[in-house]
Nucleic acid binder design. Structure first.
Lengths: 197, 197
DNA sequence: GTCTATAGATGGATAGAC
DNA sequence: GTCTATCCATCTATAGAC
């Protein structure tokens, strides 16, 4: 049921999907959401919590690895790679977490009150990235670096199905988001240059 | 009522605001939304249509002016300025269109079916920008330029109240989004470098 | 633990008086 | 054109049988 709910929410939005939709699709009885999770919102929050934890664990792991490889002073591109690579990899058509990624992106704008609070107050996973990026540019005012983190995250959050489709319309079908390895490098080219400006 | 509905939708989301909320806040009777606009969705679409038209008209005007100033070949930064400046100006605390801007950003992820169709199919206002940007980089494969447009738009769409707050939490209060003139230049620094990479 | 039945609240839309 | 009263669909959540 967890997976069914995740998919429906990711594809159609949180408000549009009812407990009835979920239980019908999962072929279980209507009461089971409340029995196992307490409420619809609690189910939503549980999916959100589990997926973001998994994503940020992987990001932290890659940042740690970059630190090891570069004696604690990784270059901008490698820091950004640790930030971007997990969510971009998850958007691949055959990736197990493809749907989860769309769920997470959606949570950012349509999330429940609990999700919004968590997003607002818990920025601990970003702090390590901010530290590392600040260290690469001691010549800049810190606020400039923080703004650039905001811009880089914006690039990431825009990777929704609908936005890919829109870009495809604009480009006349030139842009193929299926090739996530290329997408990652394109994003890094753009964001790295932005940080080095 | 138009303005009241716009504000409620912008602040609380499209699904969470009911026709009852709107008519109560506007101090009119419950039936008036349906009488004047036909339905809740039609009201939403009318707000969306009017505001996006106004925004894109201003963008087109600024792009046209840049073309005049630079003999039809404006540099990257001036093209991006025409794209960014209107929406960024609208986010200023004292700007008349501050709420409208949040409405538009929200429409992108929470929009009704009609809005999604319009966003998907009508990219005509972006075509001029794409043409101009392609002309500045004939050395690049067109798809690379299109992807960079996608990234630049992502930077823009991330300028939601909640994201500003989150950035402020991360930066310990260093980032002041009220200064939209500075914000615009920061965005242009980042995006221009991304396009020149 | 599972399921049905239903409570209880809220939503968009409309009929019809004025 | 305005407003009240109301219809009817749909939702979350839960009581209670099994």
């Amino acid at each position: 049921m967890f997976a069914v709910a995740e998919q429906l929410f990711a594809l159609h939005g949180f408000q549009k999907v009812s407990v009835r939709d979920i239980t019908a699709a999962a072929d279980v009885n209507l009461a089971s959401v409340n029995y196992h999770f307490g409420s619809k919102d609690a189910l939503l929050y549980e999916i959100f919590r589990r997926r973001t934890a998994e994503l940020n664990r992987e990001r932290a792991r890659q940042l740690h690895a970059a630190n090891e490889r570069f004696a604690g002073r990784p270059p901008v591109r490698e820091i950004l790679r640790a930030l971007f690579a997990p969510p971009v990899a998850w958007t691949a058509p055959d990736h197990e977490r493809r749907i989860a990624m769309q769920f997470i992106i959606r949570a950012r704008s349509e999330g429940t009150e609990a999700m919004r609070e968590a997003l607002q107050s818990d920025v601990s996973h970003l702090e390590r990235f901010a530290e590392s990026l600040l260290a690469t540019r001691p010549d800049l005012a810190p606020e400039v670096v923080y703004w650039r983190i905001h811009f880089a995250l914006g690039m990431l959050h825009n990777n929704r199905f609908a936005e890919f489709d829109r870009l495809n319309t604009l480009s006349g079908g030139l842009t193929r988001e299926d090739d996530t390895a290329s997408l990652l490098e394109r994003m890094l080219d753009f964001a790295e240059a932005g940080f080095l400006a």
